[in-house]
Amino acid sequence: MLQFSDATRQQALALIEKYPRKSAAIIPLLHLAQKEFGWISEEAELAVAQLLDVPVVSVREVSGFYFMFHKHPPGRYHLQVCHNISCSLLGAETILDWIREHLGIESGQTTPDGLFSVERMECLACCDRAPAMLINDELHVHLTRDKLAALVEERRRQAPPPEPHPTDNHESMET
């Protein structure tokens, strides 16, 4: 059974206090769970449900609805590339092409070494600096293929020695 660390548990209890109803903390606690475990497994849903004293189905309904909760482990560096209008006008597809050509992955997939995953994103609300993407929680803007190559290289150097990724590649999320 998956357990939150003590520190996260304390954070979770403080969050629950802020709301007039415990169940309102489902999304904040799922964010905490994802931060701690990397993704939202069924065990993570159960851990959230137990802390909140709600049925696990209430948590699962929410984790399934919201796009940001990963149902599979993403790569250590999760590239979230905006493909909406303004970013498309200024080259989002060439960014996604670079990722396919150089990392061998499409939206919803992870590299075999578990370092990088990529996902197509809807508008990130920074259209004036298009094309844009998030790498984990950092925003990167005015992307070009060269800039992306440098960002990826930098992260490869930072990363510890590769471990095999826990799961195989997954189907694209695209409709």
Binding site: N84, I85, S86, E122, C123, A125, C126, C127, D128
Partner: peptide, 11 residues
Amino acid sequence: DEGEPGTFKDR
């Protein structure tokens, strides 16, 4: 919850 494509003034 600014998300309407093209909108980034609240940010």
